[in-house]
Nucleic acid binder design. Sequence first.
DNA 1: CCGATTTTGTTCTCACGTTCACAAGCTCCT
DNA 2: AGGAGCTTGTGAACGTGAGAACAAAATCGG
Lengths: 252, 252
Amino acid sequence: MTRASSRRPGPPTRTERGIPEATVARLPVYLRALTALSDSGIATASSEDLATAAGVNSAKLRKDLSYLGSYGTRGVGYDVEYLRYQIAREIGVTQDWAVVIVGIGNLGHALANYSGFGTRGFRIVALLDADPKLVGERIGDMEVRDFAELEHIVETDRVSIGVITTPAGPAQEVCDRLVAAGVTSILNFAPVVLSVPDGVDIRKVDLSIELQILAYHEQRKSGEVALPQVPELPATNGLASDLPAVGGGVGA
Amino acid sequence: MTRASSRRPGPPTRTERGIPEATVARLPVYLRALTALSDSGIATASSEDLATAAGVNSAKLRKDLSYLGSYGTRGVGYDVEYLRYQIAREIGVTQDWAVVIVGIGNLGHALANYSGFGTRGFRIVALLDADPKLVGERIGDMEVRDFAELEHIVETDRVSIGVITTPAGPAQEVCDRLVAAGVTSILNFAPVVLSVPDGVDIRKVDLSIELQILAYHEQRKSGEVALPQVPELPATNGLASDLPAVGGGVGA
DNA sequence: CCGATTTTGTTCTCACGTTCACAAGCTCCT
DNA sequence: AGGAGCTTGTGAACGTGAGAACAAAATCGG
């Protein structure tokens, strides 16, 4: 990350053609919306139309698109096909990315069968697992291969993206192996924090965390139920054990 | 969304016991880290230790925790069990949340078998699908039931959280049914933008979007390959759509 | 009992993200 | 041709988030 030196207050920062991270995260959504519009036979769309389809407001959408260039026509809107191509190119899904999936449990299975990848610039080139009982199993038109083949596959197929769907335990080790083999982007479904060297990108998806975030809001909705305070004190070794009552005076 | 009235410039904003959204999203990570430490028999941890385990820096962690209250001991650190309970209580996972999963395809299957829910305050009370061929199938110790039973189940089991793992097509309709039945939090895996009325929380998980974000960064890493610039503007009037197919080749 | 040491909780500042609001630019109609 | 009417692209204001830095509080050793 080349950080521009001496910055003065001004536009968000942004190096050369760098696009703000928040915008990058929304581009795939716009892409999907454009594809849907295109499939409906719609050739032109205003920022308002697009924003609605993507679930954001139009000002944000216009600003996001402005980072890519000036692809709209004032007074008219955006050409759906044209814009779709531009976004796809910017994201990089005009080329094909080879992907390996490591850990063929329930989730790995599901991903292996997920058709959404192939249609969006990603090609699963291997399903790997260390369990000999799984190796050889057929899933769709692929066969589960031994994790030991990782290095070979990464090199042969120029794999740059790896998906980890193992349990938490082996995840870091799998991650290290992926990185050592040359993978530079990792999507992690295992419920652990993985550490990777600089230059390797990592994103995580944790189903349980998403539910917990929902639970937090749900709890606040349902009448601010004041739960009973701490059940008991840990009363552990020499720690500060006279814990104050938790909630203090928020009584109602 | 009760917005505090007359706010003056000052601390981030935050209503009464409201916790910043960014912090809420990290609390489950801290919770997981604390559980791991606890399982390792560690009774006390400094903000530095915790931050490392959670993959954030210690200043951020301390600030996050400060929104919950003063649960640490200066010069010592945090009592792992105590803090864990406090966070769990704040998130709301000290109580059990009933969850229904709608759409028992590959992903629904995987989630139904996912053990991470039960251990974290969530209880799957029903697996629903509209396809008669699936109804009756056993998954683990549960049986797939007909989607028509939704309303009955939501009422009986006081379900407030629904998970949508259907294809994109029926997702909005399923969503509407969930909301009408009384579900107020939804986790959506279908690749569409769902619209819900105020008061209903929705979060989305989209595997394909995550991969696309990785692809963007990957593309920038690999030599800043300057792809051929725009073929050319579409003919202005009729909106010609003869641009390269989105799969347009990338040599090399 | 007092000072050294440790680690939290908080304040301050800067960076980032979102939204508003409007000028610039395009099309269409008269 | 000229003006009316839209819609984009962007400058500026506002709000939220992150990180550095430090004062406050606790423990420990003498």
